[in-house]
Computed example of a mutant assay.
Amino acid sequence: MKSSISFIIGFLLIINSTIAGAEIEGYEVVSRNNKENITLYGKKMNGLYRGFKIDFKGSIYTRPFWNSETSPTYAPKIFYKDINKDQKEELIMTLTTGHGTGVLLEDVHVFHTIDNGLTEVIVDNPLAIIYKNVKTKLSNAEAEICIRDKEYKVDITPFEIRPENLFNDIGFGSIIDYEVINNKLMVRVSGQISPAVSSIGDIIIIYEYRNKMYQAKTIDFIKNINENPFYGPVKD
């Protein structure tokens, strides 16, 4: 009798795993990591993917309030890396919520893997980090960015911006771009000084896990594209 019960339980577990790994009716595969057996599904509604489901190694997790663009160019990205040095991989997903000329908006979601299950962890908003830690000043000739004890200055005269088209101060938020580079969660937030100039450089925030959430470890401003990790040379 015991062997029969064990067989039935094992059979049901196999069925459950098979169903979870199969396509989900009414949903499209939005992104997939075949190596790690992770698939993200979404429903296409009103030009966006909504009502997401995550198939994480055979278990289904629902995220009904996520949304993402449907263009394959801006498909969600799946990372499975150890970003907090706990010797366990974390699941990181980025979703593009908007794009256009000089605009790229992404959300990020980080999950810790506990007993082969998922627990979502808060990631501090990059704009909140900037507003708390960065001071800026803008004149007709120069943009100034102060981050804690570091000061950066950008000569804006080569842009030849008419004074009436110049913002009152440096603006942030038109580009919010997340990546996992060398096992570090990073975000790139561009600084803008007028509608015609999409960026004078990027604030790069590297996150660390601290006090049960992901917070800024370092904040830097990079104006030279050749020194910017988001443009090379190495993405992991």
Rank of each mutant, 00 (worst) to 15 (best):
P229K: 06
Y178L: 11
K77T: 14
N165V: 01
T94V: 07
A143L: 06
V123M: 09
Q215E: 15
L185I: 10
I15K: 01
L13S: 13
D55S: 14
P72G: 04
K43E: 15
F7Q: 13
Y231K: 06
K212W: 00
S71L: 10
D155H: 01
N16H: 05
I219P: 03
S71E: 14
G21K: 12
E106Y: 05
K88P: 00
I203E: 09
M213R: 13
K81F: 13
V180Y: 01
Y209N: 08
M213I: 03
E23C: 00
D202L: 07
D82P: 04
S71A: 14
D236P: 01
G51L: 07
G100C: 03
S68R: 05
K85T: 04
D124N: 12
S194N: 06
K43M: 12
Q192G: 08
I145L: 12
S4M: 02
I170E: 04
K137S: 14
P126N: 10
L12I: 15
D149I: 01
G26P: 02
M213C: 08
Y80V: 00
E36P: 01
N33M: 10
Q192M: 14
F159M: 04
M186T: 03
L40F: 05
R148S: 14
S6E: 15
T62Y: 12
L166H: 11
K57I: 09
P229M: 06
A196F: 08
T97I: 15
I181H: 06
I129P: 12
N84Q: 04
E28K: 14
M1F: 03
F56D: 04
T18W: 04
A216I: 10
T119A: 13
I147Q: 06
F230N: 07
I193N: 13
R63A: 12
N183H: 13
